[in-house]
Design a binder for these strands. Structure first.
Length: 289
DNA sequence: AGGCAGGTTCTTA
DNA sequence: TAAGAACCTGCC
């Protein structure tokens, strides 16, 4: 389907934002690059044809029922971006550089496990680990006939869609052999992953139930999970529970805060969207220039 | 070769 | 309560 969407949506920015780890950019010599997105047990291929015009592999129905929510199409990020203080010497250029950023609505369990994995790993390593886990324990994902047709027409190489795996369910992760878990490069995080999956499976950890808690209480609950500290809890809440005001502080943001905000970041000015500001700052701080 | 990468837990004072 | 060590693994 063709989508016309005039709010901020830059696929390159989101793919490199560090909020999601299963976006793969498929380079295309004879047209716009195509992004393959795996979310839960769904896959979507999408590219930007021209400014504000996107080509998606899904049906309009699938877009309405799932992807539009995933991309958080209801929220107008352009308006949030415009609230950035133009005289802020760091955030202002950061927001300009990160124009097109959105906060995806990702699935809480997938998010939780992904950010547990992320500790002391760089982004390529996080991706690799999640891919290994998914192919070891995830359900096989097969594009529909229509999607295949879409892919063939655009000359997408088969290796990009012939063997895809969903993110593993709590059940699958809880019962995965620890030797296999280790072989997915989970390292010392393996017991954390196992325990979190077991707790969700047993009902001791009720992620669905956490949705009604306020931000403070949600963070509190997430931090009770073995292997989840302040940073992972904040990332899970921001990206997995769509708590747009939460502001995860990792090493990159820490550097930004200490070098540009000695007197403190103006959180009060950006409520309830401090998390969006965090994404601009993170993306800008990590930019090659 | 040794340090480091989107941290957290465990130990010690 | 706070600082420091230890932790898997892969990549420079």
């Amino acid at each position: 389907m063709i989508l016309r969407f005039d709010d901020d949506l830059d696929l390159n920015v989101i793919a490199e934002s560090g909020q999601c780890f299963r976006w793969e950019k498929i380079k295309n010599k004879s047209g716009p690059d195509i992004f393959r997105i795996i979310a839960g047990n769904r896959v979507l291929f999408i590219c930007e044809l021209s400014r504000g015009e996107y080509d998606l592999s899904c049906s309009e129905n699938d877009f309405r029922s799932f992807w539009s929510g995933y991309f958080d199409c209801e929220t107008v990020y352009r308006e949030i971006r415009k609230t950035v203080d133009p005289s802020d010497p760091f955030l202002s250029p950061a927001a300009e550089y990160g124009k097109g950023m959105r906060i995806l609505r990702q699935e809480p369990f997938e998010c939780l496990i992904s950010f547990i994995i992320s500790q002391r790993k760089n982004i390529p390593a996080i991706r690799a680990c999640i891919e290994k886990l998914s192919s070891a324990a995830g359900e096989r994902l097969d594009p529909s006939e229509d999607e295949r047709k879409w892919l063939m027409e655009r000359r997408v190489e088969k290796r990009f869609f012939e063997e895809l795996y969903a993110f593993p369910t709590p059940q699958a992760l809880a019962t995965l052999g620890s030797d296999i878990l280790k072989s997915c490069s989970a390292g010392y995080r393996a017991p954390y992953i196992r325990k979190a999956a077991e707790d969700v499976l047993s009902g001791e950890l009720d992620l669905k139930g956490l949705e009604k808690k306020d931000d403070r209480e949600l963070i509190n609950e997430l931090m009770k999970i073995y292997g989840v500290g302040k940073k992972v809890a904040n990332c899970t809440a921001l990206f997995g529970f769509h708590r747009l005001d939460l502001f995860p502080i990792d090493v990159w943001i820490e550097r930004v805060l200490s070098s540009h905000y000695e007197k403190g970041f103006p959180f009060d000015s950006y409520r309830p969207y401090n998390g969006v500001m965090q994404q601009y700052m993170f993306f800008y701080a990590r930019s090659p220039v």
